[in-house]
Design a protein around this nucleic acid. Structure first.
Length: 466
RNA sequence: UCCCCGAUAGCUCAGCUGGCAGAGCGAGUGGCUGUUAACCACUUUGUCGCAGGUUCGAGUCCUGCUCGGGGAGCCA
């Protein structure tokens, strides 16, 4: 009979940090990370997920313990006493007095006592959280999610929940996943022989959200400063290391805020998160710096120290046209900046993060505020070395007539977005907002090269296991 | 979606101009009085991604497909 004592057990982290008061009759539970035994002594390294470091369990009389059932991956309940030791790698260890095997791990356990490739680990995403790298990553993810809330909470922003199920591909941000309860094999048809969505669950076509921005604007123009932080879905057939079909996005939206004011907040936000990672997730950052990308810590520190640059799109084009660099894609005013252009600007020309503002209206979304020149809009991309664009945002078009005209020019269904226009009709105010991909942030801070390795259960085209 | 590369033991990979399927690691067994991914000895391991084709003979050459990786586009 196995006895569990949830509240009595100590977490490994607290034992290693000497954050406990009793050293006798200590109870721990966890999984075997590695196991060594000889005739008269055995060592078990136990990990319970509370820290990266393991607790070393020392078995002084192996024949009295059920060591045959212990293997890499097995779960144990161990009672014993703590021993502070000197001259070894660990300063504290536990001498076992009683070991219960909660769950054995047969020899086909796939996590071996050696390094595995990230590609292989993705195939066993149910077990990879138990590896060093992914336990670190999942703890880091949790800490950084908290940092986001902390930043906005300290600035009196309200955390709002925008809908997951929405009715429109709002801004052409991407293809939507359909949400429907219709019978796929035999859908109801209308007079034109098209699928009749009026008979669907919501009485209209619906899909998973591609952005919470439009609803975010509604809340911002009511309670001031808000942010969203939730899952976002894009049904694009994107096969890259930087795109996932399901990802988490942070989208702040500020009333009475113009573009230049927002840039201050954006820089502040980035630096706050980077500083938080160095200070509050030191163990994780050190791990990444050692095992994932050497020098990552220095890059983070440099960004915290730097003053972000700021140029307009037009200035960026001039710089690129005068650059002594062979670009694959030619540069001229009016074209969208390619990755190679963005990286040239932030890495070679400025060698620090920069804001590029005031893009041509044609290459940006309908809701961005038109400038006096009638050609450019108050858009901003924040470019950082090694990645390119990490944040995109804009001041929103708050003038009813201007917005309506732009929507008409893009053949949008004004009826469907009447609520969005209403905000400009009744007490309209200048407002601005931006979007940060949470996984992109984690990739940048960790140095991890593939988005599939910063989210526990990645969804990408042709892949939704686990 | 486009371009390039790849798929061989549980994992990482070698296998030349076509000729008997290999290594390291892991795992298993035994040994070892304090180990740090312990160490030493022995043992174990195959639908060569799938389907066709060429050939006396294909892991190797050809075609198609599937999946994976890198890059591009879309974007966060």
């Amino acid at each position: 009979m196995i006895r569990l004592d949830y509240f009595k057990r100590f977490k490994v982290k607290d034992i290693l940090n000497d954050n406990i008061e009793e050293y006798e009759d200590v109870l721990v539970m966890g999984w075997v990370k590695t196991f060594r035994s000889s005739k008269n002594i055995a060592f078990i390294e136990l990990n319970d997920g509370s820290s990266f470091e393991n607790l070393q369990i020392v078995v002084l009389s192996p024949e009295e313990f059920p060591l045959d059932d212990i293997a890499n991956g097995a779960s144990l309940r161990v009672e014993g006493y703590l021993d502070k030791i000197e001259g070894r790698e660990q300063s504290v260890e536990m001498k076992a007095e009683k070991i219960e095997v909660l769950g054995e791990a047969p020899e086909d356990y796939k996590l071996q006592k050696k390094r595995h490739s990230f590609e292989f680990l993705r195939e066993i995403a149910h077990l990879r959280p138990r590896t060093n790298t992914f336990s670190v990553m999942n703890r880091f993810r949790s800490k950084m999610a908290y940092a986001i809330h902390k930043f906005y909470n300290e600035r009196d922003f309200y955390y709002i929940h925008t809908p997951i199920i929405t009715t429109g591909d709002a801004e052409g941000a991407g293809e939507m996943f359909r949400v429907s309860t219709l019978d796929l094999k035999n859908p109801p048809l209308n007079d034109q022989n098209e699928v009749d969505f009026s008979q669907d669950f919501f009485g209209q076509e619906t899909g998973l959200t591609v952005s919470g921005q439009l609803q975010g604007e509604l809340l911002a123009t009511a309670i001031g400063d808000i942010y969203t932080f939730g899952p976002t879905f894009r049904a694009e057939n994107s096969n890259t290391s930087r795109h996932a079909s399901e990802f988490w996005m942070i989208e702040p939206e500020m009333a009475f805020c113009e573009l230049d004011d927002m840039l201050v907040l954006m820089e502040d936000f980035i630096k706050y998160l980077f500083r938080y990672a160095l200070e509050e997730a030191e163990e994780e950052i050190n791990f990444f710096n050692k095992w994932i990308d050497e020098g990552r810590k220095e890059i983070i520190e440099e960004i915290i120290e730097s003053d972000f640059g700021q140029i307009t799109y037009t200035e960026a084009i001039e710089i690129l046209e005068n650059a002594e660099e062979d670009f694959e894609f030619p540069v001229e005013w009016g074209v969208d900046l390619q990755s190679e252009h963005e990286r040239y600007l932030t890495e070679k020309h400025f060698n620090k993060p920069i804001f590029v503002t005031d893009y041509p209206a044609e290459i940006k979304a309908f809701y961005m505020r038109l400038n006096e020149d009638g050609k450019t809009v108050k858009a901003v991309d924040c470019l950082v070395p090694q990645v390119g664009e990490i944040i995109g945002g804009s001041q929103r078009e708050e003038r009813y007539d201007v917005l309506k005209e732009k929507m008409e020019n893009e053949d949008m269904d004004l009826e469907k977005y009447s609520w969005y226009l209403d905000i400009r009709k009744y007490g309209t105010v200048p407002h601005s907002g931006f979007g940060l991909g949470f996984e992109r942030l984690l990739m940048y801070l960790s140095g991890m090269g593939n988005i599939r390795d910063v989210i526990p259960f990645p969804r990408t085209p042709k892949s939704a296991e686990y």
